[in-house]
Design a protein around this nucleic acid. Structure first.
Length: 472
RNA sequence: GGCGGCAUAGCCAAGUGGUAAGGCAGAGCUCUGCAAAAGCUCCAUUCCCCAGUUCGAAUCUGGGUGCCGCCUCCA
């Protein structure tokens, strides 16, 4: 089994991955607060973790993937009040929207999607435990985490407690004993969702849900905790404090954070109002291209989005996709027989390249490099065919490599023709065979007219030695 | 102000001590009725700047400069 190296935000170094339990990988990825449409920024961690999980499975690991929905939150409540519906109704709507978008992106479903609203008891128990251990205190129905009681506070974000106290830009809640303390439980305000608790009616603060739910579904010291790097502070820092103060065990072994998507060099976010809706992108671009774009840069780097970016990337992507598509067609006509030196050489190259892909993904999930190697494979395969190679073993190997890595693991291929009924296919067959007849009769004027008019509809016809192909 | 990160060709982007992957764009050629697709060749003596360590640095150290993120809800 290949050695996996992972950059751990906690140690700020690449570390060799050693699972908590041999052969098993446990993963908690912070999900979304469902109060508005899913945007491109949300797609990044989802697709990155999708690839990581697919890769681990290919390596033979059993994976357990938990992703939460923070469905009790100020923004949801506000939205609900604006629309005059219940908070639950809002979160339900946007959870469905989120899952539909992720399905459309080809992201595998998590094993569990725990919601705050369904884990109030677990949260209360955890808060209570922290209060008993004097890591937390109640004040007029609120409960705060006593940051000073956890000496390692700041270890993830590399913040010093003193700096944090000074850096507070907001008015400090006078009920807090320390400016850096944070709420575990908030007392109920009129008209807001509230639950009974030992401290009176109220609801959980942000952060505590992830501690409670990750503990419940994954236990202590699970393998990976992930999310966008904007969650490092305060969210993940506070999770660590809560969980580790309560259990005395590490929360997670490896902290993996993905970079932000920026728009005009500014972070894409709901609060800035500069987000690109995922739903809109999915209507406009193929799923495979979207994933190709998201995976074209290392997951920790920032990724710029701008109008026309997908079009630019589309040219490269379609070369990769077309190569796979053609290979699939070629397989039907492939020939067997003895392997020539050309065949032999091609097989060896493909073998080396496949190892390169595995190495790239093993080294901190370097999808950008894996894609680079896949392009080399495409060039080699095309070149092989250009030289007259047609051996089934080689074509099969090429197809296997592309299908597995570009297809099954990275998920950037789009092999099915998009939005295309069987009827269109049949009609195109008729049209193209007629055009072939015209070309045989050297009636190029008419043949070109057909091709040009199809092009106007967005249908591209290519005349190849194996006959005409078409694509949208 | 504190913390973290980044700076590689016109653009996107790998590369963490051994002499610059890959993609797009561009130039030439092959194939082709023409086109498209595909292939071949070319396209960074050089990696923001300045010092240093080293036989050797894009890669390590120190100092600049610029940009991004976090410190407030955020993927």
């Amino acid at each position: 089994m290949a050695e996996i190296r992972v950059y751990n935000t906690l140690s700020q170094e690449k570390e060799v991955f050693v699972p908590r339990k041999p052969g098993q990988v446990s993963i908690y990825v912070c999900g979304v607060t469902p109060y508005s449409d899913t945007h491109l920024g949300h797609a990044r961690p989802s697709v990155v973790w999708d690839v990581i999980i697919r890769f681990f499975r290919w390596l033979g690991y059993e994976t357990l993937h938990v992703q939460n929905f923070t469905d009790v939150d100020d923004k949801i409540i506000k939205k609900a009040q604006e629309e005059g519906v219940s908070a639950l109704e809002i979160s339900k709507r946007y959870i469905a929207e989120y899952l539909a978008s992720m399905d459309a992106l080809g992201v595998l479903r998590a094993d569990q999607y725990p919601k705050v609203s369904e884990h109030i008891d677990d949260i209360i128990k955890l808060v209570d435990q922290l209060v008993r251990k004097e890591h937390a205190y109640s004040a007029n129905g609120d409960v705060f985490f006593r940051v000073a009681s956890f000496p390692e506070y700041g270890k993830l974000s590399k913040q010093k407690l003193e700096e944090l106290r000074q850096g507070t830009r907001f008015e400090v809640d006078p009920k807090k004993k320390d400016a850096a303390d944070f709420a575990l439980w908030k007392s109920a305000k009129p008209g807001e969702p509230a639950w009974e608790s030992p401290w009176g009616e109220g609801r959980p603060g942000w952060h505590i849900e992830c501690s409670a739910m990750s503990l419940k579904y994954l236990g202590e010291a699970f393998d990976f905790h992930g999310g966008g790097n904007d969650l490092i502070f305060p969210h993940h820092e506070n999770e660590i404090a809560q969980s580790e103060a309560a259990t005395g065990e590490p929360l997670a072994r490896y902290w993996v954070h993905s970079g932000m998507i920026t728009l005009k060099e500014e972070k894409m976010s709901k609060s800035l109002g500069n987000f690109i809706s995922l739903k809109q992108l999915l209507e406009k671009y193929p799923r495979g291209l979207l994933r190709f774009y998201l995976l074209s840069t290392h997951y920790r780097s920032g990724l710029e989005y701008y109008e026309g970016k997908l079009e630019e990337m589309g040219k490269g992507w379609s070369r990769l996709n077309e190569a796979a598509l053609k290979l699939q067609e070629d397989l039907a006509q492939a020939q067997g027989g003895e392997l020539s030196s050309l065949d032999q050489e091609a097989l060896e190259k493909l073998d080396t390249l496949e190892k390169g892909i595995i190495d790239a993904l093993s080294d901190d999930f370097n999808t950008a490099m894996a894609l680079g190697v896949l392009f080399e494979a495409v060039r080699d395969i095309n070149s092989y065919k250009h030289q007259g190679g047609y051996h089934s073993q080689v074509l099969q190997k090429g197809w296997d490599v592309l299908r597995l890595w570009a297809g099954d693991i990275l998920g950037v291929l789009q092999l099915e023709k998009q939005q295309q009924e069987g009827l269109t296919d049949s009609l195109m067959q008729i049209l193209l065979s007629l055009r072939e007849e015209l070309r045989k009769q050297k009636n190029f004027a008419l043949a070109d007219q057909i091709r040009d008019q199809l092009a106007e509809l967005g249908v591209v016809v290519e005349d190849t030695p194996q006959g005409p192909r078409w694509k949208v």
